[in-house]
Simulated assay, not measured.
Amino acid sequence: MLILRTSPASPFGRKVRIAAEVAAVADRIRIENADTGNPDDSLRRQNPLGKIPTLLMEDGEPLFDSRVIVEYLNEIAPAPVLVPSGAQRIPVLRQQALADGMLDAAILQVYEGRFRPPELHSEKWVAHQRGKMERALAYMAHHLSAPRAGAPHIGEIGQACALGYMDLRFAGSWRSEYPALVSWLEDFARRTPAFAMTAP
């Protein structure tokens, strides 16, 4: 059985868990919590970066990061629904990259408050990361895809997880400015039960 090392609050781990459900391979994966801050956690031996999510293959070989794991899930799925082929592949991967980049900026802001003492906080650094988030949200809102039937692809899954993390760590502060994104996320949640199932 495959083993996914992650934590309930990880948006990248959530992306992989939703992708596994959508791709109909979740029953082949066992979820194991990992503590990235604990030097004694086996995660650091499994993934030299000590990051989550990490997927352990049946022979113990690790896969990381979330984008690589998703590509693998797409390959072993009964049908490759996560990452389309042909002309749609690059736009979907671009949407995933935007969501991942927004998450990186959000997480760096959280870490600034969590790991650095208050006297060392850099408002310039935080504002730099906040600008990335704001531009990403504006881009997402301007490039919303029309509702469509069928399973969500990884661009949509990544975008939903990024917005969910904004709700978790930034009290949903994006919602008042981007009502179209709010509606999009509500529609995604309605047609993707795994989004509620994986909520932190």
Rank of each mutant, 00 (worst) to 15 (best):
L2R: 10
L4P: 07
L4F: 07
T6C: 06
T6L: 08
S7N: 15
P11A: 11
G13S: 12
K15W: 06
V16Y: 10
V16S: 11
R17H: 09
A19R: 10
A19I: 13
E21Y: 12
V22E: 14
V22Y: 03
A23H: 09
A23C: 07
A24V: 03
V25S: 09
V25E: 11
A26D: 05
D27R: 14
R28K: 12
I29W: 11
I31G: 08
E32I: 12
N33Y: 04
N33W: 02
A34G: 02
A34P: 03
D35Q: 10
G37P: 07
P39M: 08
R44L: 07
N47W: 03
P48Q: 10
L49P: 04
G50P: 12
K51R: 15
I52Q: 05
T54L: 03
T54R: 05
L55G: 02
E61Q: 14
P62K: 07
L63G: 00
L63A: 00
D65N: 04
S66K: 01
V68D: 11
E71K: 00
L73V: 04
P78A: 09
P78V: 14
A79V: 00
P80E: 04
P80C: 02
S85W: 15
G86S: 06
I90S: 11
L93E: 10
R94P: 00
A97D: 06
A99R: 15
A99K: 14
D100G: 03
G101N: 10
D104M: 07
A105G: 08
V110E: 00
V110N: 14
R114V: 01
R114Y: 01
P117C: 05
P118F: 01
L120V: 01
S122H: 13
S122N: 13
E123A: 11
E123S: 14
V126C: 06
V126L: 12
V126Y: 03
M133P: 03
E134D: 12
R135Q: 13
L137Q: 07
L137H: 14
H142D: 15
H143A: 12
H143Q: 09
P147H: 11
A149C: 09
A149Y: 06
A151M: 10
P152N: 09
P152L: 05
H153Q: 15
I154P: 11
I154C: 04
G155A: 01
E156W: 15
I157S: 03
I157Q: 06
G158D: 00
A160C: 08
C161S: 13
A162K: 02
L163G: 09
G164V: 10
Y165E: 08
M166N: 01
F170L: 13
F170M: 14
G172W: 00
S176I: 05
S176A: 13
S176P: 01
S176V: 13
P179N: 02
A180F: 05
L181I: 10
L181H: 04
V182C: 13
S183Y: 12
S183C: 08
S183V: 14
W184Y: 15
L185S: 01
F188S: 06
R190H: 06
P193F: 00
A196E: 14
M197T: 15
T198G: 00
T198L: 11
